[in-house]
């Protein structure tokens, strides 16, 4: 932790970065919250541990945060403390031209997993399900990296098992399952707000002329909203799980995102936010893309 604090302090003091988005303790050592610091002496607030659940890349597209990097007419770097999986989101944002690689200073960690929920001790039971299938516990891109890799507590991948179990269901049963889950939605849009890849200035669900997605939180409006959200994130979602964590109604959004990750992986061998040199999946095409479903 001291290493992190000292490094950030130095980077702020020598002007490499204009601000750093990081984590600080939130009322208890077992909960953290985002903090944006601009003064070297504030670096002492920073922490990094298994309670750093937020994907801070969500702030990189916010106007006021971007403005922090504009110092006396020049654009400086924004520092971000990012878990290796959060780095995927930063990379995906760069791939989608939301920022430039040279605009961010990535401070990452060799990561030993995070908990599902604040206040729990990290064990095989409490580990976040995304960590169980994590393919990059060492950051793929970084400007500074800390920490030592340790073994993750082992645990069965229940999420994948659940997704697989849908294969045996009829369409009607699946429809019924998701309808009941989506029914709970209250349209608070916390899933959208927490998602680093949901940066549209006007979301399709807020468009009123014409009204594509009904704003009412009734069965039909909810189904359409959750369907469109999932589609807009298909092959763009980095699987950070922030949407599901933010959802107050406990809707299993990760079950859908994860399925779509699998689809992109199987059909296009594509993983979002892994490679700065390649274009995004939906922003490009290959004449040889498979098409056996087309008549």
């Amino acid at each position: 932790m001291d290493e992190l604090r000292n490094h950030v302090k130095e980077m702020l003091a020598n002007g490499t970065v204009a601000a750093v988005i990081g984590y600080k303790e939130a009322g208890s050592p077992m909960r953290t919250k985002p903090v944006i610091i601009t003064a070297p002496e504030e670096a002492i607030l920073l922490v990094f541990n298994e309670y750093c659940l937020n994907n801070l890349a969500v702030y990189l597209t916010k106007a006021r945060v971007k403005n922090l990097a504009r110092v006396n007419g020049t654009i400086k770097k924004l520092g971000i403390v990012a878990k290796p999986c959060d780095v995927h989101a930063v990379i995906a944002l760069i791939q989608e031209s939301q920022l430039k690689r040279e605009d961010v200073y990535i401070i990452s960690f060799n990561c030993n997993g995070v908990v599902k929920d604040y206040g729990e001790t990290l064990t095989g039971e409490t580990i976040a399900s995304k960590c169980l299938h994590c393919d990059a516990r060492q950051p793929l891109y970084h400007d500074k990296v800390f920490g030592e890799l340790k073994d993750l507590p082992a645990s069965p991948d229940e999420e994948l098992a659940k997704i697989k179990s849908f294969d045996d269901m009829t369409s009607q049963e699946r429809f019924e399952y998701f309808k009941n889950e989506f029914d709970k939605c209250i349209k608070c849009y916390a899933c959208r707000a927490a998602c680093p890849m949901c940066y549209c200035t006007q979301c399709i669900t807020d468009k009123t002329i014409p009204r594509w997605v009904e704003s009412s939180a009734h069965g039909r409006g909810n189904f359409s909203w959750n369907l469109i959200r999932a589609f807009h994130l298909s092959a763009r979602c980095v699987g950070c799980g922030e949407c599901e964590r933010a959802c107050p109604m406990d809707i299993p959004l990760s079950l859908i995102n994860r399925k779509m990750l699998e689809v992109a992986k199987n059909d296009f061998a594509y993983l979002s936010g892994r490679n700065l040199e390649t274009p995004t999946l939906v922003g490009s095409f290959d004449v040889k893309d498979k098409e056996e479903f087309i008549l």
Binding site: V35, R64, I186, C188, A190, A193, A246
Partner: peptide, 14 residues
């Protein structure tokens, strides 16, 4: 506070 808050309505809806 505003710089950290994500502008959802989780707080209002619950």
């Amino acid at each position: 506070i505003g710089d950290v808050c994500l502008s959802c309505a989780q707080c209002a809806f619950v």
